[in-house]
Design a protein around this nucleic acid. Structure first.
Length: 886
RNA sequence: GCCCGAGUGGCGGAAUUGGUAGACGCGCUGGAUUCAAAAUCCAGUUCUGGCAACAGAGUGAGGGUUCGAUUCCCUCCUCGGGUACCA
């Protein structure tokens, strides 16, 4: 019986589609399971083999869950706004919508060719006005929400209390006050600008090396532009706390915690000589205040002009200008050498009463804390470097004790820096009633904060690294903001009933050099007039690509609703997402943004859960083998030949080294899923993607590996399609045991997302069938039910060959019968001093003393016991026997 | 620098409340089938020594706990990911 997958794979895909076998509706009588894939950006190059990895995993889980009686929601859609389609439009004049539609069609065809059990009636597209209408609707909700820090909760802007002092200032002041509290606001912001893409980008889109994540060029710089921002830091604590109850990889939680960057410390006010203003600093080490020997303000600090004395003005101005011209990249690249300049001004250390100089230096960032620090060079490495560079005093106030070893003397002398715990020295001022000498770090911090608060010089403070989210782009192909700027300065949102604000037709997609969006070139769209004849301009920025993916999981619940984003009853049934699988590259941004929006919607009573994604799993990257010469230069795969496990250049004959690298066109090692489906079938592709290794591991693709699973399916087909192999009788004990072990193992492994070992168990079962030659029809059908989630096409095909009606996908999952797994004897491995020497079968119910006797008397034991003394014998029933001899 | 994760045959990988290291697959070797090849089926395959029985070594390196360690603890090395003047 030949395994001609191509004769039936298409047939079954069509059957599933036409009969809507995987469509689901909210149904309270059944338990629900919402299983979500991170939806793709439909690029022009089509699916790569990384996509089906996660999709197959969720598909197996969904098919399994259905068989277990769950009502499964398993949707797919397109995150289709984005730069490539727009770049293509600039080059060719093709409207991005046209390109997008074409790419979506390719993606849909490719995904459907893998037999994935999506409910295609729920397909969504972020670029569809019927979808982004609601993205705009949510933006309006963000705009009309403020965060009540007291309640730690977002509330409607109509509930915002306006202080009397603000009211006294008039309407303008009230409007400004309200604007300052909205979660979405419009402001002049220093932002990253990419000269290549002609748009701003978020901080997080600019990589460490100063290149833009999206285009890879280093043409990014700082600019001041009017921008939309979202106040995500208000939700920092909620976003941090919310992680606790989630079933997410620990690494992703760590990365989010890291990104939020909570730190606790204190704000301290320093008196400045000759100025009425105090200089406020933030420090996590208020305990080291006795050691503060100078202060630093960032070049952008608001007080710099007051601080600088006339004789130092030129030098400081020059420094500030130079710092402003430097990109952040330059600042960090030159991080090894600290720069700075003295303002000429002194502050007073509140504990020592000493005059300490105030410097300006760019190692202090304006965006964190108060933009000013107290410098404790003896106990902070950055301050230490700075102090050494500029010859500032280093006063040690913490004795490291023996922990520092030989370093200790240098530290105490101020010639080295110590940031760990120790015992304080020189840290007392009897006049002020403060003495922390001898205390440990923890105690010291508490004591100093208490003292500062009592004396009104400072207070305990919490700080977060997370910044406001830059939420606008100067591009065409994105969601328009539902915002109008009126000629009198008022900013208003478009009324809900006037949504969506659609994109205008244009043929000029090229953004301006100074930050104008292409939308500003379309006057008939841009200019509006209200009923009173007041003129206004629409917001010409568009939303970033993150916007559409922030809430798509909610739209899947009710994708065709044009009255509301989704029905509340349906949301209540399906949420939260029970399993969310996607790449680790979204560990921070997408998942954090999405959680933020969700929490706002939760606070406003629009969704019923505080968190959107209950369980998250990251599939690993699929890599490919690549080849390089001894000097490290890469060789494309078509120039490589293998001989006896070694690799050689086909032209030069040079021996090459096999390495593992990302698939890339330049290395010519990209694997196209279409080719694999064509050659080996969809079931083989699915099975191989799962068999390669653990789902979360990065692993290299090999064609021989695909052949391996293809061979397995071929064996399955030729055995189970051969009528002579299938009997009407019953099976022997051994076969039933392997069958039920297989049900057990596959069940456990699917629950644990360990598909590779599930497949290996199915291989063991198949090998067993070959050894037996014949199995009962009942056993064969049971096996097909187990195989079906992994290789659905072949399972359907064999299922009907047994005279069953379609479909195996609608059969209940088989139950394990423990009776077939029970054993009455166990073949014990017998060890002597921990080394296994022989095996010995004994009844499982044999008492331990009898086992010991039997082992000591065993023929094979003689050799190991002779001339030695038995110290003891360890028997773990059903596991192992170990005899300790001497 | 800091925070995660991972190092197991020729290769992908399996096994962890501490209990037979190398399941399953690839590759390789031998056999059957064939005029022959492909395909398929069967057997073998951690390394070293030995015809074999068997013995010794063995999960990145070194140390420790234990009757017993791939699994737990300490020190170190290598690789991958994240992050970096965040006071």
């Amino acid at each position: 019986m030949d395994y001609n997958f191509s004769t039936f794979e298409k047939k079954w895909q069509q059957y599933w589609l036409e009969n809507k076998l995987f469509a689901s509706e909210a149904d309270r009588s059944k338990p629900k399971f919402y299983c979500l894939d991170m939806f793709p950006y439909p690029s022009g190059s089509g699916l790569h083999v990384g996509h089906p990895e996660g999709y197959t995993a969720t598909d197996i889980v969904c098919r399994y869950k259905r068989a277990r009686g769950f009502n499964v929601l398993h949707p797919m859609g397109w995150d289709a706004f984005g730069l490539p389609a727009e770049q293509y439009a600039i080059q060719t004049g093709t409207h991005p919508a046209v390109t997008t539609k074409k790419n979506c069609n390719t993606f849909r065809r490719q995904i459907q060719s893998l037999g994935l059990s999506y409910d295609w009636d729920r397909e969504i597209n972020t670029t569809d006005p019927a979808y982004f209408k609601w993205t705009q609707w949510i933006f309006i909700r963000l705009y009309n929400t403020w965060f009540d820090t007291e309640l730690q909760k977002g509330r409607p802007i109509s509930e915002l209390p306006i202080p009397e002092t603000v009211k006294d200032g008039g309407v303008q002041d009230v409007q400004e006050y309200i604007a300052s509290k909205r979660l979405a606001y419009y402001d002049n912001a220093q932002v990253w600008w990419c000269n290549h893409c002609k748009t701003v980008c978020a901080n997080e889109e600019v990589l460490n090396d100063g290149s833009h994540e999206k285009c890879g060029t280093k043409e990014v710089e700082r600019r001041f532009l009017k921008q939309w921002m979202l106040r995500i830091p208000h939700y920092a604590e909620r976003l941090l706390q919310g992680l606790e109850g989630l079933d997410w990889p620990a690494g992703v939680k760590d990365m989010q915690r890291n990104w939020i960057g909570k730190s606790t410390g204190a704000e301290v006010d320093f008196v400045v000589e000759g100025l009425p203003e105090k200089l406020k600093v933030y420090t996590t080490r208020p305990d080291t205040l006795f050691g503060a020997t100078y202060m630093v303000v960032s070049p952008e600090h608001g007080l710099v002009n007051e601080l600088v004395t006339p004789e130092n003005k030129d030098a400081v101005d020059e420094y500030i200008q130079a710092a402003a011209l430097k990109s952040d990249l330059d600042r960090t690249e030159l991080a090894k050498e600290k720069t700075g300049v003295f303002t000429g001004r002194y502050a007073i250390n509140p504990l020592t009463g000493k005059k300490i100089p105030i410097w300006v230096a760019d190692y202090v960032l304006m965006g964190y804390g108060t933009g000013a620090i107290m410098a404790v060079p003896a106990h902070d490495t950055r301050d230490f470097e700075f102090a050494k560079t500029f010859g500032l005093p280093v006063d040690c106030i913490l004795d490291p004790g023996n922990a520092a070893g030989e370093l200790r003397e240098k530290i105490i002398a101020g010639d080295a820096c110590w940031t760990e715990d120790g015992a304080y020295i020189n840290s007392a001022n009897p006049e002020l009633g403060l003495d922390i000498n001898g205390m440990s770090k923890q105690k010291g911090i508490e004591t100093v904060i208490n003292w500062l608060e009592k004396n009104n010089l400072g207070k305990a403070t919490v700080n977060y690294k997370i910044r406001d989210w830059l939420f606008s782009r100067q591009r065409y192909w994105g969601e328009p903001f539902p915002i109008i700027h009126w000629e009198d300065g008022e900013v208003s949102v478009v009324a809900d009933e006037d949504l969506p604000v659609e994109l205008p037709e244009t043929n000029k997609y090229q953004p301006g050099d100074s930050g104008e969006s292409p939308l500003s070139n379309v006057p008939e769209w841009l200019e509006v007039v209200d009923e009173n004849g007041r003129k206004g301009l629409r917001e010409t920025n568009t939303m970033p690509q993150w916007a559409g993916s922030c809430w798509y999981y909610l739209r899947f619940i009710d994708p065709k609703n044009d009255e509301e984003p989704f029905s509340k009853a349906k949301e209540n049934y399906w949420m939260p997402v029970d399993l969310y699988i996607g790449g680790a590259e979204h560990a921070v941004l997408h998942l954090l943004y999405s959680r933020f929006w969700h929490k706002v919607l939760f606070d406003l009573g629009i969704v019923s859960t505080d968190e959107p994604y209950q369980k998250l799993f990251n599939q690993g990257m699929i890599l490919a083998f690549a080849y390089e010469t001894a000097s490290g230069s890469k060789v494309t795969s078509d120039m490589v030949e293998e001989k006896d496990g070694k690799y050689f250049h086909t032209q030069t004959g040079e021996e090459l080294k096999q390495i593992v690298a990302k698939m890339s066109k330049s290395l010519k090692n990209v694997v196209n899923p279409d080719d694999v489906v064509e050659k080996y079938g969809a079931d083989s592709l699915r099975l191989y993607e799962m068999f390669m290794g653990p789902l979360d591991a990065t692993k290299p693709w090999t064609d021989t590996g695909v052949k391996g699973v293809y061979n397995f399916l071929k064996r399955v087909y030729s055995f189970f399609a051969e009528k002579e192999n299938i009997t009407d009788g019953t099976d022997d004990k051994e076969t039933l045991k392997v069958l039920h072990q297989t049900i057990q193992k596959v069940t456990d492994d699917v629950e644990g997302l360990k598909f590779n070992t599930a497949i290996s168990q199915m291989m063991i079962f198949t090998n067993h069938c070959y050894k037996k030659g014949k199995v009962s029809r009942e056993t064969a059908e049971t096996f097909l039910k187990v195989l079906a989630p992994f290789a659905p096409h072949i399972s359907e095909e064999l299922w009907v060959q047994y005279g069953n009606g379609p479909s195996v996908s609608q059969q209940a999952w088989p139950e394990v019968n423990e009776k077939f797994l029970e054993e009455d004897a166990f073949e014990y491995p017998v060890s002597f001093n921990g080394k296994m020497r022989y095996k010995f079968s004994l009844p499982l119910d044999m008492p331990v003393p009898d086992i010991e006797k039997a082992v000591h008397a065993h023929e094979m034991s003689k050799k190991w016991i002779e001339g030695k003394q038995i110290i003891k014998t360890i028997v773990v029933p059903g596991k192992i026997i170990n005899v300790v001899v001497k």
